[in-house]
Simulated scan of single mutants.
Amino acid sequence: MHPGQRAADDDLVRRLVARQFPRWAGRTVRRYPSGGTVNALYRLGHDLVVRLPLTQGGAGDVARERAWLPRLAPLLPVAVPEVLGAGEPAEGYPWPWSVYRWLPGENPRAGALGAPEALAVDLARFVTAMRGVSLPGAPVAHRGGPVASLDRATRAAVEELRGIPGEAVDCDAALAVWEAALAAPPWDGPPVWLHADLMPGNLLVDGGRLTAVIDFGCAGAGDPACDLFPAWNLLPSGAREVFRAALGVDDATWLRGRGRTLSQALVALPYYRTTNPAMADNARHVIREVLEEHASAGHPRPRATRTKRGR
């Protein structure tokens, strides 16, 4: 998926574990299929999971989780990962890695939620709890800065999508939504604690209800709009309104949150379309949901403009 991505396999994990955590040596190791983009996951026996960063950029997330997860866990309403082993570079693997307790549950899937409105309430409770955290010294959340900081990458992604045959993205409508996010009043309050990556792959449910949130590698402080991702990457329109009402989101924050979610999807789609089907499909879903919401609010879709490519 990425330039410089590190190869990993079952044998490497066995050697790393045997060398650094001999109490777990001899356990079965098997790769766990995941649509994630930053880490490879390996089941270690039935109750543990090894998480190996795929790139040097992901290695920084390891330290963030080790530092903050133990302090965040007692303040949150659902389970979060528990670091049981702090692995270090060895066996030719160059970055720190971790062993976690395995958290049961399934990733929710947009369009196949058992109790979407109840899940919306659960998600709002989690986001509210994160915002209420008062731990000092919070790092800056990934993507937690001003919306304008995403402008160049967002516009570049839109232009790239214009040139990809077969991707039915209304790029002019997407730019209209993005412009609305840029025009929305910025967050003028203090930064709040955020998970900052509430994608379906980072949520676990059981019986349709939220049981755990994983992957805190992006967590930190920033604009509260950053944690509105589930509104468009997971929840149908009715549950989306439940989520918004439970959080008490004002119009400006909603516009910024929608723009941020759209930006992430626009950037992800051309990047992952041939390497990570789960991420690409989620991006298509987000773009579709955002543009439908924008149109249903009475905003006409812009007339298509002809470019040098004939579009």
Score class of each variant (00 low, 15 high):
P3S: 06
P3D: 14
R14D: 08
L16C: 06
T28P: 00
V49H: 07
V49A: 04
L54N: 04
D61V: 00
D61S: 13
A67K: 10
L69R: 06
P77G: 12
L84T: 14
E88Q: 15
Y100A: 03
R101D: 09
G105L: 05
L123D: 14
L123Y: 08
L123V: 14
M130H: 02
M130R: 05
R131G: 15
S134K: 04
L135T: 10
A138V: 03
V147M: 13
S149G: 09
L150W: 01
D151S: 05
A153M: 02
R155N: 07
R155D: 07
A156N: 11
A157C: 10
E159W: 05
G163W: 03
I164W: 06
I164E: 12
P165I: 00
A173I: 01
L175N: 04
A176T: 05
A180Q: 14
A184G: 07
D188M: 13
L194T: 07
A196S: 15
D197Y: 03
L203C: 08
L203D: 12
G207P: 08
G217D: 11
C218G: 08
C218K: 01
G220R: 02
A221Q: 08
D227I: 11
W232E: 01
W254K: 04
R258S: 01
G259H: 10
S263I: 07
L269G: 09
P270E: 10
Y271V: 13
Y271N: 02
Y272L: 12
A278P: 00
I287P: 03
I287S: 06
R288N: 03
E289T: 11
A295E: 10
R301W: 04
P302K: 14
A304V: 12
A304G: 10
K308S: 13
G310I: 13
G310A: 14
